[in-house]
């Protein structure tokens, strides 16, 4: 049954623009239903701030179903907050208690510059995909979909990796600001499938090297897996590392043959 949480204190990172120094500001939430989602609690705060004539807190959000990957937020030192396998938009206030102080920070990484308040730019992810996170198949020339049977376990494993929503929690949670889980999830999805074999090694090389321009390195802490709202396993990182290693040798051989 619904209960009401009282007397919450929010410490929210406010920052006017990319170049500005930010600071924490403290807001009181005298009461909120535990049925409210975390973002609805911020909506309520924002509505109040507009009423008071001050600027509301800027934060990214969209589908609120945990699938679009737009929402972010470091909540009490955890990416997407305290609930495992849950994006911020599906986190509900029943995970908190009356009197709690909740600290909300934006994702922090060099590749995710802060735009305003809690909103960051995650375009670096797009750059990684543009570098090779696709299968080159122009529209129109595809053979019949059932031409290549794909064993169910392979299709399932590819799907597990493909579940990534591109939210950036892996980068945010990583002590090194690495994007290996994001990149490896895409590499794994495409490299496991028969359709992806033609570009398998070109793909992993291009993606890893683009990732390298923006992000830190993986030192196998495993924080990304814990923060991932889709609970993607760091096994995909091992697969990427293996494929990159193979790619380095195979691509070199392929080039020397030309």
């Amino acid at each position: 049954m619904t209960t009401t949480l009282t007397n919450l204190t929010l410490k929210i990172w406010r920052q006017d623009g990319p170049g500005d120094a930010g600071r924490f500001e403290t807001y009181q939430i005298p009461e909120i239903s535990d049925e409210a989602s975390f973002l609805e609690m911020l909506d309520v705060l924002n509505e109040r701030l507009i009423g008071e004539g001050t600027e509301p807190v800027t934060f990214d959000h969209d589908c609120r179903e945990g699938i679009c990957g737009t929402c972010s937020l470091m909540i009490d030192g955890q990416a997407h907050g305290p609930q495992r396998g849950t994006a911020t938009c599906q986190l509900h206030m029943r995970k908190f208690q009356s009197g709690d102080t909740i600290v909300i920070e934006p994702w922090r990484a060099s590749a995710f510059p802060i735009i305003k308040d809690l909103m960051v730019d995650r375009s670096a992810f797009d750059r990684i995909v543009e570098a090779g996170g696709y299968i080159s198949a122009d529209t129109g020339g595809a053979p019949d979909a059932n031409l290549i049977p794909i064993p169910k376990p392979v299709a399932d494993a590819a799907m597990d990796a493909a579940a990534c929503i591109g939210c950036g929690a892996c980068v945010a949670a990583c002590p090194n600001g690495a994007a290996n889980l994001f990149t490896a999830a895409k590499v794994t999805h495409l490299n496991l499938l028969p359709q992806g074999q033609a570009e398998r090694f070109k793909r992993v090389e291009a993606m890893v090297e683009t990732m390298d321009e923006y992000f830190g390195s993986c030192t196998n802490h495993g924080e990304c897996e814990a923060a991932c709202p889709k609970e993607i396993s760091i096994d995909v990182i091992a697969l990427m590392n293996a494929d990159y290693r193979k790619a380095k040798f195979k691509n070199r051989k392929a080039l020397s043959r030309i």
Binding site: W13, D76, A173, P175, A178, G216, H221
Partner: peptide, 21 residues
């Protein structure tokens, strides 16, 4: 060095690590 550059501005609140030992 890479990792320092990847997060030049640290989190300003304490982290709550889940898995990292």
């Amino acid at each position: 060095v890479i990792n320092r550059k990847a997060r030049p501005v640290k989190y300003q609140s304490p982290r709550d690590y889940q898995i990292a030992s």
